[in-house]
Design a protein around this nucleic acid. Sequence first.
RNA 1: GCGGGCGUAGCUCAAUGGUAGAGUUCUAGUCUUCCAAACUAGCCACGCGGGUUCGAUUCCCGCCGCCCGCUCCA
Length: 606
Amino acid sequence: MAEPKTNELMEKIVSLCKRRGFVFQSSEIYGGINGFWDYGPLGAELKRNVKDAWWTTMTRMREDVAGLEATIIMAPEIWRASGHVDTFADLMVECPVTNRRYRVDQVEPQSGIVYYYSGATEDRAKYEAWLAEKKQTPSPTKQYEDTRPFSVLVAKGKPPESARKVAAEYYAKAGFVQFPTLLGERAEPIDNTSLYSPDSGARLTEPRPFNLMFKTYVGPVESEDNVAYLRPETAQAIFAQFKNVLETSRQKVPFGIAQVGKAFRNEVTPRNFTFRSREFEQMELEFFIKPDEATEAIAGTIAKPGAAHPGEPQPSWGWEIWHKYWVEERIRFYENIGLPRTTLEEYWQKPEELAHYARATVDLLFKFPFGTQELEGIAARSDFDLSQHERFSRKPMGVFDEELRTAWGKLDDAKKQELSSRYYEARLKYLTKVGVPADQAAKEAKDAAERLAKGQYIPHVIEPSAGVDRLILALIANAFTEVTETDEKGKTETRVIMKFHPRIAPMKVGVMPLLKNKPELVAKAREVFELLRGQMSAFYDDGGSIGRRYARQDEAGTPFCLTIDFDTLGEKPELKDTVTIRYRDDGKQERVNISELLPLLLSKIR
RNA sequence: GCGGGCGUAGCUCAAUGGUAGAGUUCUAGUCUUCCAAACUAGCCACGCGGGUUCGAUUCCCGCCGCCCGCUCCA
């Protein structure tokens, strides 16, 4: 149940975003287009600041990360290697009870008895008991019957109750009725049908294309031969260019490749303002590490993570501690741009929730007004990605590690044997999982283990992957502050202050003359404005009263306002060439000499 | 994708089968010595398309969009 309060808050945030020019609906004059959003003047500055902060933190401030900017459209084979095409390229049917999807041509034909139902009505006694327990009144719009026909296949010899159970689940799930009484049951034997769900027996949905990737054609001819996709994530480009970056950046494992860019997913239901959009931007790092067997050969042991930030990277770090390291680094980043740790949640995915390639995944969640939702996922992806690209492209993705070769030579035989066989097992497991025939898999795994002994391996990956647009939304929600004030006449007024961290605030400073109709004040204010612009985003404003201008800047989230008054001009000689700096969050004011302004402000926004 | 609600100035809301009004914002001006002051003037709207009708913002249908619940989110 959504609290009405949170809806109200979201509405206020959406309204402010439009009113102040943070976010507009895409193509609004044509009625809008679902799942696409534009950033207005303030939103564009905010987004740029956030991306710059990420880029600076992740690449410029680190010696072990290099940048990349790849294209949105890439060779379609990339998406076959990554697994994005396979699952979704064909017509799919869905089981309405378990929601599992099947390729329509891969549903095994079944035989048995089909139980047909013409619909269901509400079991009022159960429904009312349930309402009483939940202390709710019935919804006036609630219908008490569902007239959609439904059918279930059960194996011969099974009792009709098993069919009824599935049918009841179906009707209850669809929402018309909570406690269905089934109508019009009749049974019929059937042979070799592919219309029913292999897991629940429920009648499958009509086949429909189900590909969440946007499709286009390269070249003027729209044929199947030149189909291409808009990338659904930026990560794959990093893997595809791994070797080129490695060779040109003079990096050695462990190192990372960072990229910021657009990605596209044809979401079934975009929701929650910009949170789930069809066109969105990602900030992704793929951090390549040695397999644990190599690390152990070099360092003798594998360091394990504790509860705290593990500190500076060490040669003994295995994948687990690297993973923990990146989780902590990413939380620090959010703290640095004004999202306190208390607004975030860490969610360690359970083994059964993990994607097929992942060894561990931590979601960093933000407490949005509409619920606690993912901002970033930090996945330990093993060597899955590079291995897949090696298999599909037939280009070697392994690296040669001098350190490993030297260390390996000094190991005793027992240790060599142990590490070798662990590496062999891991490779075998991967190869088997992706469908390589058993004898071939065994041979390839053996080759890989032999290469390891010579200093060669396919790096493993830790991937911190963040959504820019949902981060912007989080920052806006976090900054949004309402202040209600009552003046001496008893009139209450609610004002909005956007409390962005100065580092990411779209406008850093507002410059204004105290009075607009005094040319000396205006001239001096323009002079101060010229001094600052170019060094930071600055806004000159002389419209309306000074209070109105402050309020406007508060709503835009500008952390500092400078006011030029008669003392600036020398009315009080000791205050000549000083201005008032006014702070957004508490309205406090200080006098600052113009010559000190630039260093002072720069120190606050960096 | 299913079900429900909604759609009138930038925003918040009104009225109406005979082409719309307020507050606020915004713009310009007068004034104004620090937190949305006052006065004057001005700009700006019936989501799109079809139907019924002499006439539709109003009634009906379709589409688009937004919100809510389910679903989806590799």
